[in-house]
Amino acid sequence: MNNPMLLAVRTLLKETFDGPEKNASWYTEAKPGNGLFGTLEKLSAEDASISVNGTTIAAQTDHTRYYLWAANSYLNGEEPRKDWEASWKITNVDKITWAQFNDKLQQEYTTLLKKIDLLDSLDEQTSNGLLGAIAHSAYHLGSIRQMIKALKVPSQT
């Protein structure tokens, strides 16, 4: 891949999901495990099911997966039938479901990287979609990290 924009998109997506490489970062804290996958792997299903300000980390995770699925569908030339509200209805997950959510998020992310590798150039629509995938995923990474902070605060007794 010789397209600098596609290389940048790939780099920023990898930082968002896998974390920064070689302790260098464009926008996340330059420590191992600071990407979305490293953040989520530290959480139990019970933690992911706790409501923080009306949503759960499980819902945030599934919503991020859903967005990547939609982005992948558009890159396939499809117009996906979207139901954004469905991804926010998740309130409680068990250990198996939580593992499935993480696996499906990984699958959509891997699919997106493979699609990027097949691109030679970018039109405006594809550019907006890929940049939107970075921004959207980074937003939810930040939301999840803030939710985790709220979960770890000792009770005020």
Rank of each mutant, 00 (worst) to 15 (best):
M1T: 09
P4Q: 02
P4G: 00
M5E: 15
L6Q: 10
L6A: 01
L6I: 06
L7E: 13
A8V: 00
V9A: 10
V9T: 14
R10N: 14
T11M: 00
T11Q: 13
L12M: 14
L12S: 05
L12I: 06
E15V: 09
E15Q: 12
T16S: 14
T16A: 13
K22S: 14
S25L: 01
T28C: 09
E29G: 02
A30N: 04
K31Y: 03
K31V: 12
G33Y: 13
N34G: 02
N34V: 08
G35N: 10
G38K: 06
G38N: 08
T39Y: 06
T39C: 02
E41N: 14
K42C: 00
L43V: 04
L43E: 03
L43F: 08
S44A: 06
S44I: 00
S44K: 04
D47T: 08
D47C: 04
D47Y: 00
A48T: 01
S49C: 06
I50F: 00
S51H: 06
N53V: 07
G54R: 10
T56V: 09
T56L: 06
I57W: 03
I57L: 12
A58K: 09
A59M: 06
H63S: 09
T64K: 02
T64A: 15
R65Y: 13
S73C: 14
Y74V: 11
Y74H: 14
G77M: 04
R81V: 13
R81P: 06
K82I: 14
W84E: 10
E85A: 15
S87I: 04
S87V: 04
I90M: 03
V93G: 03
D94L: 02
K95R: 04
K95D: 15
W98C: 01
A99L: 07
A99D: 12
A99G: 12
Q100L: 05
N102W: 03
K104P: 02
E108V: 00
T110Y: 01
T110P: 08
L112D: 04
L113A: 02
K114V: 05
K115G: 03
I116V: 14
D117F: 03
L118F: 05
L122E: 10
D123W: 04
D123K: 08
Q125V: 11
Q125F: 11
Q125M: 10
T126P: 03
T126A: 11
N128R: 13
I134A: 09
A135C: 01
H136F: 05
S137M: 09
A138F: 07
Y139E: 12
Y139Q: 05
H140T: 00
H140M: 01
G142L: 11
G142R: 00
G142C: 05
S143G: 07
R145S: 15
I148Y: 10
I148R: 10
K149H: 01
L151V: 03
L151E: 08
L151A: 10
L151R: 02
V153D: 00
V153H: 02
P154F: 09
P154K: 11
T157W: 09
T157L: 12
